[in-house]
């Protein structure tokens, strides 16, 4: 019971700590989704059916990845620098409660943009998405994996390096990751790399559950995500529990 109470108190703490920036963060990451859905057709006026579906379902995936792998590591890195993490670690609170509470707040930031992105995409392209009920675990899995991996990056690296790496991740995710296009468009070596990284799997489970009639749902992608999720969480948990 104490763990549950602590979880609630920590969610309140973390949400209040972010409250001055929370609306702005939510707005910016919603704009990610909307920007892709509304901006891609300007770049490519004629899009085939598959590309349209890829863009409409890829936008929410990009939004989740960008929050988890970019905004989160930068914020957590800042908290590390200002002593916020050390302070929380000095409290009689299970590391797990703290981590799960913080991840909850990050999910609260991510989810509205995902939902809005899906609806605006369907409306913009006039799509009739046959959304699978599996979309709920799929979106949670993608959001959780990206936040866990992002947390691990911030836990392991010094702040400045985190900022630099996350900037590189932005370019990599937007331009060279099979989220709004299929992996076979990539050069062979990059395709191989993406089979091991979690980003491609994030795209696959998002589009496979948002538009199951258009794309298959490779179960292997869930497994890949699960492995990365556990890895990210484990690394973060170990880094938080470590005494210097």
């Amino acid at each position: 019971m104490q763990a549950l109470r602590n979880y609630q108190l920590l969610v309140t703490w973390q949400a209040l700590r972010k409250k001055n920036y929370l609306p702005l963060m939510m707005a910016v990451q919603t704009l990610f989704s909307l920007g892709i859905v509304l901006g891609y057709p300007l770049l490519f006026p004629t899009l085939d059916r598959t590309s349209i579906y890829l863009i409409a379902t890829g936008a929410p995936a990009i939004s989740m990845v960008s929050v988890g792998l970019v905004a989160l590591p930068q914020t957590v890195g800042e908290q590390k620098t200002e002593g916020s993490l050390a302070y929380m670690r000095s409290l009689p609170v299970a590391r797990l409660s703290y981590l799960v509470a913080d991840l909850t707040v990050w999910l609260m930031i991510v989810i509205p943009g995902v939902i809005l992105g899906v609806f605006v995409g369907a409306w913009r392209f006039g799509l009739d998405l046959q959304i699978s009920p599996l979309v709920v675990p799929a979106v949670l899995m993608v959001a959780l994996t990206s936040t866990c991996v992002g947390y691990a990056i911030a836990s392991l690296l010094p702040y400045m390096l985190t900022v630099i790496i996350t900037q590189a991740i932005v370019v990599f995710v937007f331009m060279f990751s099979p989220l709004t296009f299929l992996p076979d468009k990539l050069p062979g070596w990059l395709e191989t790399i993406h089979q091991m990284l979690p980003i491609q799997a994030m795209g696959e489970v998002t589009r496979g559950t948002l538009a199951p009639n258009e794309f298959g749902l490779p179960l292997g992608a869930f497994l890949t995500l699960a492995i990365w999720c556990v890895l990210g969480f484990g690394v973060t948990y170990a880094a938080m529990s470590r005494r210097g």
Partner: peptide, 25 residues
């Protein structure tokens, strides 16, 4: 009480003191 300034921006003193008091059990 750590040497570094406590990171509570976003919270009011009332909220910060109450939350920590409860987190301490």
């Amino acid at each position: 009480q750590a040497q570094a300034q406590v990171p509570i921006d976003g919270l009011t003193p009332r909220q910060a003191i109450d939350l920590i008091g409860q987190l301490r059990g």
